[in-house]
Simulated assay, not measured.
Amino acid sequence: MVCRSGCGACCIAPAITQPFYGMPAGKPAGVRCVHLEDDLRCALFGQPERPACCGRFLAEPAFCGDSREEALRILTDLEAESLPA
């Protein structure tokens, strides 16, 4: 699957627990990454400052669904499931 233009769900829904360029405290779940541009593209894509976890994420129907809204719901639900009980 090719990353959906105008989505950005993977830059909003999941938490990034390690510090990274521009977000020294990491990124909480549900918070827009500071590097997500207005057109919902990553400003760090292809750059060495991009977090490794972002580089490992692959757009797949199981995560991205059929729309931006569905992707946000799926990734938010997955993030909630990963929280300790």
Rank of each mutant, 00 (worst) to 15 (best):
P19T: 05
I74L: 10
G6E: 07
S67I: 13
E60N: 10
C11T: 15
A43V: 00
P28D: 07
Q18C: 05
D38T: 04
C64H: 13
C10F: 14
T76V: 05
D66I: 10
T76F: 06
D38H: 08
P61A: 09
C54V: 06
G26E: 13
D39L: 08
C7M: 10
F20D: 09
P19N: 07
R4L: 15
T76Q: 00
V34D: 08
E70V: 01
A25K: 14
R56V: 02
C53R: 04
R73S: 08
P61V: 05
C64K: 09
C53Y: 06
A25I: 06
G65V: 09
L75V: 03
L40S: 05
E37S: 11
H35L: 06
L44M: 13
L72N: 12
P14S: 12
L83V: 01
P24Q: 00
G55K: 14
R50H: 08
G46Y: 02
P61Y: 00
P61G: 03
E79H: 10
R41K: 14
L75N: 01
P48D: 13
C42V: 13
G22P: 01
C7V: 04
A43D: 05
S67N: 09
R73A: 06
L78Q: 15
G65M: 11
A43M: 12
L75S: 02
L58Q: 01
C64A: 15
A29N: 00
F20T: 12
C42A: 01
R32V: 14
A15K: 10
D77Q: 15
R56W: 08
A29L: 02
S67F: 09
Q47F: 03
A13W: 05
D39I: 04
A59G: 08
T17G: 06
G22K: 11
P61I: 01
G46M: 03
L78M: 14
A71I: 01
I12P: 06
T17Q: 06
D66W: 09
A59V: 07
P48V: 00
K27R: 14
C11M: 02
V34N: 07
C10L: 10
P28I: 02
F20G: 06
V31H: 04
G8T: 08
Q18E: 14
S67M: 11
G55N: 12
R68V: 01
D77N: 14
E60P: 01
E70K: 10
P51Y: 08
